Simulated assay, not measured.
Amino acid sequence: MIPLFRRVLAEAVGTGLLVAVVVGSGIMAQRLSPDDVGLQLLENALATVFGLGVLIAVLGPVSGAHFNPVVSLADYWQGRRTGAGLSARELAFYVIAQIGGAIAGAVLANAMFAEPAISWAATERSASHLWLGEMVATAGLMLVIFGLVREGRTAVAPAAVAGYIGAAYWFTSSTSFANPAVTIGRAFSDTFAGIAPASVPAFIAAQLAGGVIGLLLVTGLFGRAPAGSQQEAVMTHPGQPSTDRTVRPAERTSGR
C-alpha cells in the first residue's frame, strides 16, 4: 500500500516541477528570443508538453499525478457515487500539497535563472475573453482525462493530456493555465509566464466553472459511472496493494 504521505509528497513534487518547467522555460524563452513573442510561446509550450508528459508517467503510479486541484476535486466528487475517489481528508492534503508545490516551483525557477526568489508578477490577465479561454481550457482538460478513463484508454493519458495542454496554449486566449495551483504559483514570478496576483481569483473561478462543465460533458457523452464502478482510473489504486489492479476515478493526470 502507498501511504498518504508518499502520495502527498508526489503531488507536491510533481506540481512543483511542473511550475518550474512552465516558469523556467518561459524565462529561457525570453532570453533566447527576446524580440519574438510567438517563438517564446512556442518554446514555452514545447517544454511544458514534454515536462508534463514525463511527470504524469513517472508519478502517476504513486499519487495518480493530479497536480491540479480541479482534477482532485472532480475525483472526490465522482468518488462519492462510485466509492473509489479521494476522501475529503485526502482531497485537503492533495490541494495543500499542490499549491505549496506550485509556489516552491516558481521560486526554484526564479532562483535557477538568477531572478529574485519571489517577484510578484505584474502581467495583468483580467478580461472576459481570457476567463472564457480558461473555462474552455479546463473543460477540455476534464473531458480528455475523464473521457479516456471512462473508455479504458488510460495508457495514452500522459501523451494525450500533455498534447491537449500544448494545443490549448495556442487555441485559447488565456494560453491555458487550466489549473488553480499553477495559477497561484505563476503569480510568484514576474516573468514571461507570470500572472498578476489581482488576476488570480477570476482565473481560478473560471477554471472551477470549466471543471464543472467538463464533468457535465463527460456524463453527457459517456453516461454516469454506475455506483461501485472501478473502471474510472488510470494507474493502480495508490491505497491498494500492487496486486489489486482496481484504481481511483481521477488518479490519472493533470494540467498545467
Rank of each mutant, 00 (worst) to 15 (best):
E90S: 10
A233I: 09
V22N: 00
F177T: 07
P226M: 10
G133V: 07
F5Q: 11
H129T: 14
L141M: 13
L9N: 04
V156F: 13
L221A: 15
F203S: 13
W170H: 14
V144F: 00
A10H: 00
A162G: 09
G228A: 11
P116H: 05
F146D: 02
P69W: 03
G26I: 01
S25R: 04
A104Y: 07
V144S: 03
A114C: 09
R245E: 13
F171G: 02
G26P: 01
L32C: 09
N44D: 10
H237T: 13
R6Q: 14
Y169T: 03
Q40N: 11
S229E: 09
H129A: 11
V161Y: 01
N179G: 04
P238H: 05
G166W: 00
V144R: 00
A155T: 12
D35A: 12
A109Y: 02
A122M: 11
R125N: 00
R256E: 11
Q231T: 15
F113K: 03
A97N: 05
A12L: 15
G51A: 12
V234I: 11
V161H: 01
P201K: 08
E43G: 14
L216D: 01
T15L: 03
G239N: 08
N179H: 06
F192T: 00
T246I: 12
A111P: 07
I204F: 08
A196K: 07
V107A: 14
V22A: 10
Y164G: 01
A12E: 03
F67N: 00
I118K: 06
L59W: 06
I184V: 15
A121Q: 02
V49Q: 02
Y164W: 14
L39Q: 12
T48F: 05
R31L: 13
G101V: 10
F222G: 04
I27D: 03
P69D: 02
M142K: 04
S72N: 10
I213Q: 07
A57F: 12
M142F: 11
A205R: 02
A45T: 09
H237P: 10
M1Q: 13
A57I: 11
L4S: 14
